[in-house]
Amino acid sequence: MHARKPNAPAVVLLSGGLDSATVLAIAKKLGYAVHALSFRYGQRHSSELDAATRVAKSLGAVEHQIIDLDLRRFVGGSALTDDAYDVPTSPGANNEIPITYVPARNTIMLSVALGWAEALGGLDIFFGANAVDYSGYPDCRPDYVKSFEATANLATKVGVESHQESTRFRVHAPIIQMSKAQIIQAGMSLGVDFSQTVSCYQANAEGLACGQCESCRLRKEGFQSAGIPDPTHYL
């Protein structure tokens, strides 16, 4: 798969973590002009946004926008946006959606990405959904990605006016069926500096990871399985 045409604009959701950094590198490799999009949504720390800024610059994004969207105003529902909940340090029960799930987060962020892509004259959105080594979030499944892509083509001027598959919106989730180790190996082959990334749910202001939360656990296991030294900065 390659870009529709050289330097076609694409919006990439960039959290500052390992997965989204790899996805940005993939989009660049495919020949897209990458417009990185991050959100200050009320998450527990801003160090992941500092990481996103570093990653966008080092991987050559055309521009990087950070949108303020305060999901803390909707009290309850997630340990990432409500301090009344503790970030869990052990896996939940099988098939249980964890308390770190943020209600409708990917749908909200993809909707903003869709608006920016259409304004840019682009037809491609990339995000780091993963259905293998992940936390069980409902908005990271292949069915969800297909559903949002269908919505994108129903809800936009471009989608309604298009009569060809080649001129319709596409939502790309290139790592959705990859293990964490495979994601790390792919990122390394594309020149991603994972020491710049922050995946921890509760990193401190300097970006130091707790080493205990589920995101840290999955990241550690990924580097171990890949046989690559873990460059994460831990507390």
Results as ranks from 00 to 15, higher is better:
residue 142 P to Y: 04
residue 157 K to N: 11
residue 164 Q to R: 10
residue 158 V to R: 11
residue 117 A to G: 08
residue 162 S to K: 01
residue 158 V to C: 07
residue 172 H to N: 13
residue 195 S to D: 01
residue 188 M to A: 14
residue 120 L to N: 11
residue 143 D to K: 12
residue 131 A to Q: 01
residue 135 S to R: 00
residue 120 L to T: 13
residue 109 M to R: 05
residue 197 T to I: 00
residue 113 A to F: 07
residue 139 D to V: 04
residue 128 G to E: 05
residue 116 W to L: 15
residue 153 N to W: 01
residue 160 V to K: 15
residue 169 F to Q: 08
residue 161 E to M: 11
residue 117 A to F: 03
residue 129 A to G: 14
residue 109 M to K: 07
residue 138 P to A: 09
residue 170 R to C: 04
residue 125 I to V: 12
residue 126 F to Q: 09
residue 193 D to M: 07
residue 129 A to H: 03
residue 142 P to R: 01
residue 155 A to P: 06
residue 149 E to F: 00
residue 136 G to C: 06
residue 176 I to V: 15
residue 180 K to R: 12
residue 119 A to I: 03
residue 142 P to F: 02
residue 105 R to L: 12
residue 196 Q to M: 13
residue 150 A to T: 15
residue 183 I to Q: 15
residue 121 G to W: 00
residue 122 G to Q: 08
residue 110 L to K: 02
residue 115 G to W: 03
residue 174 P to C: 07
residue 138 P to E: 05
residue 181 A to C: 10
residue 153 N to L: 08
residue 174 P to Q: 08
residue 190 L to I: 12
residue 166 S to D: 15
residue 167 T to A: 11
residue 136 G to E: 10
residue 198 V to C: 00
residue 165 E to L: 12
residue 130 N to V: 05
residue 197 T to A: 08
residue 105 R to C: 13
residue 109 M to I: 09
residue 132 V to A: 07
residue 150 A to G: 14
residue 165 E to G: 04
residue 163 H to R: 13
residue 137 Y to A: 05
residue 172 H to Y: 06
residue 140 C to M: 10
residue 139 D to A: 09
residue 182 Q to E: 15
residue 106 N to S: 12
residue 119 A to P: 01
residue 151 T to V: 14
residue 124 D to R: 06
residue 162 S to M: 05
residue 121 G to D: 07
residue 192 V to Q: 11
residue 175 I to V: 14
residue 103 P to M: 13
residue 170 R to Y: 05
residue 149 E to H: 02
residue 166 S to P: 01
residue 172 H to E: 10
residue 185 Q to E: 15
residue 113 A to Q: 06
residue 177 Q to W: 00
residue 105 R to T: 10
residue 103 P to Q: 11
residue 156 T to L: 11
residue 128 G to C: 03
residue 130 N to E: 04
residue 194 F to A: 02
residue 142 P to S: 07
residue 110 L to V: 14
residue 157 K to F: 13
residue 164 Q to L: 12
residue 150 A to F: 11
residue 173 A to W: 03
residue 162 S to G: 06
residue 182 Q to H: 05
residue 160 V to Y: 07
residue 191 G to E: 03
residue 109 M to H: 15
residue 158 V to K: 10
residue 139 D to S: 08
residue 185 Q to F: 01
